[in-house]
Amino acid sequence: MDRMAATRVVLARAGDALIVSNLGSNTYDLHALGHRPANFYMWGAMGLTASVGLGLALARPERRVIVLDGDGSLLMNLGALATAAAQAPGNLVHIVWVNGLWQETGGQPIATAGAADLAAIGRGAGLRRVVAVDDPDGLDAALARAMAEPGPWLLVARLHETGSHEPPPVRPIANRDEFMAAAREAPKA
């Protein structure tokens, strides 16, 4: 599955969900497909995207929160899966793109290129709604459920690299203010 195509599938299902994107490729792809006020673009804090999504989901239980994460980043903060399972916010949809690489730094292979299985780790951390997909139709079907049924969800999607490499012209502080205003809104039906 193509990374940009996979991000398109997410956006088609996202509705008014609050989206937090991981540093690098996920932030670039999300912005390249059209800025939305409900997008929070991370530029750093590798590993913390899942945690930011968890905090947001706890603060805004009425809104769906989508985390666009990367396998290299999640491997830095696997404890976040256990914390999400313990807190169990029903509105959290954590999507992890698995390419088995540190893409931004030259494509060095990482543990998920070999034996590490993030879906199994998620289940082992206590998450019940874990789906592994490897094509756009599978991702779309999983998202249809994840956006409608209570989570927390962990969608682990294997893909290859063909996304954007264009850093978005968005200043963090401006992004923060616009996102916070969008997050305050009531959910759309």
Partner: peptide, 22 residues
């Protein structure tokens, strides 16, 4: 309360909470 696995995780959780108005 959110019991963390590691302190840095809490920085992310609290940043997300703040973004959501908590």
């Amino acid at each position: 309360l959110v019991c963390l696995t590691r302190e840095e995780e809490g920085v992310g959780v609290l940043a997300g909470g703040y973004l959501g108005g908590m």
